[in-house]
Structures are given as structure tokens and as C-alpha cells.
Design a binder for these strands. Sequence first.
DNA 1: GGCTTATCACTTAC
DNA 2: CGTAAGTGATAAGC
Length: 690
Amino acid sequence: MEQGFGSASESIDKSRVLEVKPLRCLVPVFPNPPGMSSVSTPQPTPFVCVPPSGPFPPGVQPFYPFLAPNGTQQTPPSNFGFGTNIPAPVPLNSFRTPPQANGTTSRPKKVAKTRASKSVGIEDDGLNESSEFGTEFTDPDGASNSGNRRVRPRRKSAENGGDGFDVDSLVNSFLASYKLSEFDDFRRTNGDNETVGTILLVFDLIRRKLTQLEETKELATGATRRPDLKAGTLLMTKGIRTNNLKRIGHIPGIEVGDIFFFRMELCLVGIHAPSMAGIDYMSVKLTKDEEPVAVSIVSSGGYDDEGNDGDVLIYSGQGGVQRRDGQMFDQKLERGNLALEKSLHRANDVRVIRGIKENNSSNAKIYVYDGLYKIRESWAEKKSGCNVFKYKLVRVPGQPEAFTLLKSIQQWKDGTATRTSVILPDLASGSESLPVALVNEVDGEKGPPHFTYISTLKYSKPFTSPEPSVGCHCVGGCQPGDTNCPCNRKNGGYLPYSSNGILMTNKSLIHECGLSCSCPPNCRNRMSQTGIKVRVEVFKTKNRGWGLRSWDPIRAGAFICEYAGDVIKALPGSVDNYIFDATRYYEPLEAVRENSNEFKKAPFPLVISAKNNGNVGRFMNHSCSPNVFWQPVLRESNNESYLHVGFFAIRHIPPMQELTYDYGMVSIDKQEKGKKKCLCGSVKCKGYFY
DNA sequence: GGCTTATCACTTAC
DNA sequence: CGTAAGTGATAAGC
């Protein structure tokens, strides 16, 4: 055994590193402009790319930092400000040609290739799309090679017959709803907040829907065992992705601290292209030689990374372990390892995405964009006698907290560190399953005006008395696809929630199980009845009074809390800051805001006052770019129906980001009454709210 | 050179 | 905890 290498310093083998052939340029060539903000104003990087299909615009020369526009300059410019010279777009590998915006020259190729080689083909069941692709592939199975014949049958099963559901039509309808049907090359290449958000939203809608279809056995067997991959592929093959060309530095539309729940999400928004590999890199051409340069890494802890030290990350190279049997061998200085080595010498920024276990019980992982790092050192270590490369990355200073914040929160939760500025450890006094801290880091105010904490909505009398409703007899909890379950039927045949409590589809009304149902309290169809699901805190905002935010990362679609309070008959005469008025018009999602009224929610006859009694819902502020939406939830029991209001996440919400929803619009004739100046700060702010 | 095929990799849910 | 299905990018192969 190589126990002689026990200490890290002894095991450093610089000779490995020194084998790298000398580099022409040993000074930083991908500098950030001084004072560059990592969050709000990502600057253009030198490697903004154009579609590599060419021809290149006149005057465009590759790799500005290395070559002057005339191609004569061999050394990096001394002025790194990029003030007058806009970095030239750079073609990457030509086979990654994205579909053209209007011409269909490259698209049929890509699609045909994808179909022939990947043979997944779920998109085939909607052949209405195929005309767009021009030439239809004729005989992919006729290819001479029979090597992967094993995989072919799946394609057949997924192609059409067995599926009771038209996935392609579903996807197309999602794309139409979110105005992605005519997704152009510009958005495909250059992301922004809205494009990134919409793509992630649609990805999750498709993923959730596929999960639902899988549960109810409406898809061919095995077709969606990995709904995340399937949803990703569907969008990828349709070209619904952004930032699809690799670049060094920040990705437009993605901020430090943004969180993700699937590796496919990282691909779709262009922050990290490989679906599994941890190192993403691209080729750059220095003179006549191409060499790889690392652009991003995912640190998931699978390789003994020493990732607990905040702004320093010791990252292990890739390879060196046989996937099947776990047998180890020497890592080689190739692919990602070589790219990291080159990036060490070039000192270019490398994006770091850190994976972290969401909680102790499940092995679900979340990924947080931790911003830019630079590689400072590399060496080789021995592990079980085999060579392993190590890279020391140091975070570029001045970026907002991201990974370290998540680590701090974990410590608050497990008690190894204490949250500062806590006024009250549990505002709810134990009436919720999770404590709700009251925090003020802003001023001396000791808390909001007094109110009584209740965890659910209080009715003085039943909401409606329609025809008798039938409760279910699902003793073990309602099961998806159970056609005998009346609660299933009331929801259109699907349970509205996934197994981990994610709202599956946006509906006008959710029917939850009620008092007359035999199912247990932990039934999946009682999501809103067991109180808050995330560890929230009430905190003092800078300029908007008290607000609500979460210690836990929140998945898109996740239930957060209901709006508790007293049901009142009508709006009180005096203006009450703690009113929830379901009779207003609401536009549920920002992404469809400009669409016609058909997307607006119909008003519901429910008004709640949380002035005297309420829960955390009463602290949620208004925003014109909200991250939370509400959903009417009906709980029925025999002849009585109780309407509730459930809050759900519109998108993935990073920890400590304020939770907000759109307070909605009152009717036209009352608009001036109770108008308040909106301070949400969104670029889409309407300036006021009610 | 362009297309096909195999290989790679810090996934993920059961 | 193990494992198998499954992906985009890459590189080898023809």
C-alpha cells in the first residue's frame, strides 16, 4: 500500500504537472473588468459566441484576446477593459450548429441524426410536427451496423402505439403557452432572466406531467423512468435551450446563488453542458493548436472534494474509476483534467456549481451556482495506489454569498451555529410542525403588531353546500391512477400533487380530501392541510415592513403554506393590510402575463382577514415579479365545502430570497381606492398595488 | 469531411 | 445501499 503518501504534502507529485507542454501565454487572458459585479450586471466575456454555422460576419476574427482583429497581435492587450473593442464572437466546434432561425438547412440534419442515433423518439408520436423538419428520416434501422440493435425496440414502443398520451402535443401546448413556439437563435444563444426562467418553468411542467403520466401508466412502460432526462431531451431536441454556446465567465440570466434540482437544468440554461460529467470545457485556438479550457465544474462530493471550506475548493480530476465494478486506475491528463490544467495556466474564470445534499433524510441533491473561481494549483495524489489529480480553486472575491450561505443555514438547522438577530425563535409557538423564526437585521423594531397565530383558515360557517360529495375510501392514502377513487376523479383523473408534494399542473381548483374521506392525514391529496412545509422566517425588510423568506431551497411547484385567517363576508370598510381577496383578478404567472385574459384566474368568492388571526402567509409581500402564486384548494366533507388558499412556488427559490406573490387587480371601478406604491423593485413593476 | 457509433461521466429513482 | 436506465458531448471510426 502507498501509505507513505498519507499526508497531502508528501503526495504532491509536481512532475505530473510539469509534463504539460509549455504554454505560450502564462498571464491571465480572460480578465474581468475591474469592479465587475457578479450578479446584476454580468459583463460580456471575450468568448461570446455566434452560431458556428458561419459564414462569419465581415471583420470577425477568432479569439480577440489572442489575435487582434487583423490577426497580427500575438500578445494579450495590456488594456483589459474591453472598452472600445467588443470581443469578437467565436465559432466553436461546427457540429454543434444550432438550428437556424428561419432557414431549415441545419435543423433536419440535427433532428434526423438525433433520432437515428439516440433512438429515443418520444417526439415521434406527434407527427404533425414532422413537416416542419422537411425531410423525414426514412430508414434509420437500415444502417449497416447492428451493434446497438438492442436499443431499437424501445424506440418502437415509444414511437406511438402503446402510449395513451400524446406527449409531443403536450409539449407543444406548453411551448405555445409560454411563447416558446418561435424560439429564435438569438434567445438560444443569449440568455436572460426571463428566458432562463421560462425554460426552467416549462422543463419542470413537462417533468411533472411525465411523472404523473408514468404513475397512471399512460405512457409506454419505462418511457419515463427518468422524467428529468426525458423532459430535458424533449426540450433539447426542439432547440428550447439558451446560452447553448460555451463561454467563459457568467451566464446571462443566471445569478450567483441560483439553485437547480437536476443536472439537465444546468444543460438547458447553458451553465454546464454535460449531463453527467463534472467538468465542462471548450477548445480555444491559440495559434494553430487547439487546446481545451475549463469553463465550469460541478462539485457534488462524489470524489472526496474538500468543499467545506467556503471560498476554496479542492476538486478532483475525472476518471480513474471503472464505473461498473468500481475498480480504480490512474487518472489521465486528458479531457476535463487537461482542460483544468490549461485553465490553471491561463487563469481564466471557471464557473463552479456546488452540489449539496438537500437534507439528511433523502439523498436528493440541489445545485447552487457559486459564481466564478480561479484555479490556483494542481497536483497529483495517490489514492489506493492510483493517480488522482487535484485542483485548488479559489473563489473570485466580491461575489454574493451562495454556497457558504447554504452551509450556514444547514448549521442553523442542525444547531451547530445560531441564527443572529433572532427576536423570537418560533413565532408560531409550536402550532406548526416547523418553527418560524422572527428576525430583524435591519433596525430596532421588535416585531409586527400583535396577532394570534393559527395554522389554518377559520370558517364561521360552511362555505357552500352543493350536492353531496362522496369521500374516498383509500385507507392507505389516495393512489395515482386509481380510477375508483372519487378524489382522483374530481381532479380530472390525476392526483394534483407528486409524491414529494409538488403541484403537478396549474388548475383552476384543486380538490383535496376532506373530513368524509377515509384516507389518513398524510395522504398525498391533503398537501395543504398539514401546515408549512419549508422552514420559513419572518424578517424585517429594508423598506417594506415585515416579509417572509425560507431557509430551505424551494422547488418550483412546491407547496409553501396556506393563507390562514378569518373568512369574512366582504371587504371591511377600513383598509386592512392583512386581507387576502380572492375576488380580485390574478395573473398567475409572469411568463404569461402579456397573454390574453384567458390565462387570468377567475375570481373566487373568498375574502380572508388575517389581521387578528393568521399564519406566515400574512407576511408575504406583493411583487410584480413574484416567485409564489396562490391556488384555490377545496376541501369537501359530505355536504360542506371549504375553500382554502394554497401558496406554491412559481420557480426554484434560493434560500433567503423573499417570498412574494402578486396581490392582483381589483375591478376597474375601484382601482383608485387603497392604491399603494409598489416597492418590489422588479423591472416589470407596475408602480403600485392594492 | 461528414456522418455514425462507441465511450465517458461528481445522475437519479427505485 | 445497489443498480440500471439513460443523457449530451466527445472522439474514434468509416
